[in-house]
Design a protein around this nucleic acid. Structure first.
Lengths: 152, 152
DNA sequence: TATTTTGACTATCTTTGACTTTTAAAGAAA
DNA sequence: TTTCTTTAAAAGTCAAAGATAGTCAAAATA
C-alpha cells in the first residue's frame, strides 16, 4: 500500500470531502507528488471509474482542468445504475430505449420534455450510420445520459 | 478560471448589463487589462460569437470602435428555425453546440437539465466514431432535437 | 503475471507580437 | 471652398510560443 497511486487516490478523495465534485489540475498534482502527469490519468482511469461512482470532465489548454463528480446513492440512482450496468448493454434498439424512457417518465426521473429530447436526439434518423454500429452508439450515448442524470 | 480571457469576457458582459449593446475600445481595454490588443479579438472571437447570441460591428482608424450587440430572440420558434436552417449546418463541433445551448438556456428555451442531457448524449465520448463523421452525425441529431423543441 | 510508473508524442486552448488594413483628421494644393 | 494627399490612430490577421490535458507503450515493480 505504499504505492503512489493509492496515495493520490486518497488525497483526491480527502480533498473532495463531502462536496459533490472537485476540480484538480493534472500538472499541479503531478508536481505535488513528484510523479509523471500521466500518472494522474492512471489514477483517474483505475480509481475514479463509473463503477466506483465517479464521472469525469476535463478541458485542455490554458486554464484547463479535470473535474471529478460523485454519483450519489439514491433510490432513483440505484435504478438508473442498474439500467446502465444490466439492462442497456452494448447495443440498444430505438424501441427498447423508448420503453425504458416511458418507465423513467412514469417514475418521474425524466420529464416528458426530456424524454422527447432524448428520443429525437438518438432516433434512427439522427444516428445516420450503418446499422451495425447504430445500436452500439445509441447504447453508449444513452448510458452517458443516464450517468449524467445521476449527478445533476 | 484564472485566465484573462474569462475575466475580460465577464467584464464586457457586466459592462453591457441589461443594455442591448455596448461600445468598447480595443486598445483601451487591452491597456486596462495589460494584455495584447489581439487578446481582445481572441475574446471576441471565442466568447461573443453568433452562437452565443452576439453580433459585432467595428471600425478602424481614428475614432474607431467595436460594438457588441445582443441578438434578440423574441420568438423562440423563429430563432430555433434559423438555427436549423442556417446556423448549424452539416457539421457541428461539440464546443459550438455547447455555445448554442448556453444561449438557449439563457433564453429559457431549454432548462439546465435538458442542456446537460443533450451535452451528455452528443458528447465526443457518446458518439464514438471516426472524426470525419462525428460532427456530421452531431449536426443531424442536434437539428432533430431543435425541431422537436419547436413542437413541444 | 498483473499492476504501476515513466516518458515521448499528440491534441487543445490561451497569450503574444509582428505585420496589415482601414479610417478620420489634418494639411496642402487647386 | 473644394479636393487631394499625408499621417496617426484605430482595428484585423495570423502564426508562433506557452500552458494544459490525453494516449499509449515500454520499463519497472509487486
Amino acid at each position: 500500500m505504499a504505492n503512489i497511486s493509492d496515495i493520490i487516490e486518497k488525497f483526491i478523495i480527502q480533498t473532495m470531502g463531502a462536496e459533490e465534485s472537485v476540480d484538480i489540475s493534472r500538472n499541479q498534482l503531478a508536481e505535488y507528488f513528484s510523479c509523471a502527469p500521466s500518472q494522474i490519468n492512471y489514477v483517474l482511469d483505475t480509481r475514479f471509474t463509473v463503477d466506483k461512482g465517479y464521472l469525469k470532465e476535463s478541458r485542455r489548454g490554458g486554464s484547463g482542468f479535470i473535474k471529478i463528480s460523485k454519483i450519489k446513492t439514491s433510490d432513483s440512482n440505484e435504478y438508473l445504475s442498474s439500467l446502465v450496468s444490466d439492462s442497456v448493454g452494448d447495443e440498444l434498439a430505438f424501441r427498447r430505449m423508448e420503453q425504458i424512457l416511458d418507465k423513467l417518465e412514469t417514475e418521474k426521473i425524466v420529464s416528458a420534455n426530456e424524454k422527447n429530447i432524448i428520443l429525437a436526439g438518438l432516433s434512427d434518423d439522427s444516428l445516420s450510420m450503418p446499422f451495425t454500429i447504430k445500436d452500439k452508439v445509441r447504447a453508449k450515448a444513452f448510458k452517458n445520459i443516464l450517468l449524467k442524470l445521476m449527478v445533476v
